[in-house]
């Protein structure tokens, strides 16, 4: 199973901007998605949501095409939608619905039989730890719980291709861990595409990453491959507090993290050259460093 994106482009009409009436939300994206967890990283407005909606067939690309095992998803239609699960970044619930009723409704939309739906709902409510609130109205749940209801509905049809737009936003640390475990168990022989700008979320679960900026995919690869690009560029140094403004404005240095030490000095993590700051120590680069480096 594979999903191939070829020259996928989405332009919006932007009436508010007279000088530049065309907003290029996604620009010439080529991707070859294979089984595993894919992390889609990008800043706000970089086009992640737009790309995901096209991949789910909700939105038509301005140009380019998306194929599932070689066949255009538009012509696959129902057969394609039967294989996907989608968690939008934002979506509405029916105010009168309880968690259980909502999942029953969506399972009917996904064409599940009564028995199968019941079984799947019970199973998933346990997995996202929502069993206790199943009879509660969704609008009365906390933000993180709503998110988990969203994750559960995406998984109802046991999709081969799961698309999650910022699934971890609003989840507490314990739920994040549960979510990661749920995904890594689920992702065998399936494609999972996750978008986020919280790098640490996918650093551990994503087998492949794609980094998006201004609608384009800048780099793809495993975390190691991507991180290798900034090998030897990440350092840590301890400086007196008053020197901070100087280093902040120094050319060639990008500070990625700051920490106050007990003695009143500052511990800096930065991208640049070792020689830039005296006594700097090389560090193992992370995806987050890369992400900030590319920004």
């Amino acid at each position: 199973m594979e999903i191939i994106l070829e020259h996928v482009t989405k332009h919006f009409k932007d009436k508010s901007n007279k000088n530049n009436p065309v907003k290029k939300a996604v620009e010439n994206v080529n991707l070859h998605l294979t089984p595993g967890v894919w992390g889609l990283l990008g800043a706000n407005g970089s086009g992640k949501t737009t790309l995901m909606r096209m991949v789910c067939g909700i939105m038509k690309p301005t140009s380019g095409c998306i194929r599932y095992d070689g066949i255009d998803i538009e012509s696959l239609d129902e057969a394609y939608r039967d294989k996907i699960g989608y968690l939008p970044q934002e979506f509405g619930f029916y105010p009168e619905f309880t968690v259980q009723q909502y999942l029953e409704y969506i399972s009917a939309l996904k064409g599940l039989s009564d028995d199968l739906a019941k079984e799947r709902i019970n199973e998933l409510l346990a997995k996202v730890s929502l069993e206790e609130v199943r009879r509660k109205k969704i609008i009365k749940l906390s933000g993180g719980m709503k998110r988990r209801v969203g994750i559960a509905q995406a998984l109802l049809n046991d999709p081969e291709f799961l698309v999650l737009d910022e699934p971890t936003s609003g989840l507490d640390p314990a739920e994040r861990v549960r979510f990661r475990n749920l995904l890594s168990e689920f992702a065998k022989d399936r494609i999972v595409l996750i978008s986020t700008h919280i790098v640490s979320d996918i650093e551990y679960i994503a087998t492949q990453n794609a980094i998006m900026k201004n609608g384009e995919i800048l780099h793809t690869g495993t975390t190691q491959e991507l991180v290798a690009r900034i090998h030897g560029k990440v350092f840590q140094a301890t400086i007196p507090q008053q020197e901070l403004p100087m280093w902040e404005s120094a050319p060639g240095i990008q500070i990625v993290n700051l920490r106050n030490e007990e003695d009143g000095r500052l511990c800096l993590r930065y991208l640049g050259k070792q020689a830039d700051i005296p006594d700097a120590v090389p560090q193992n680069p992370t995806l987050e460093d890369l992400y900030l480096y590319l920004k």
């Binding site: 989608y86 939008p88 979506f91 619930f93 009917a108 939309l109 064409g111 509905q153």
Partner: peptide, 15 residues
């Protein structure tokens, strides 16, 4: 209006 549409449209019978 509520945005429930996105999920509906991504389901098998949602069109």
């Amino acid at each position: 209006q509520t945005g429930a549409d996105d999920i509906l449209r991504s389901t098998k019978l949602g069109r």
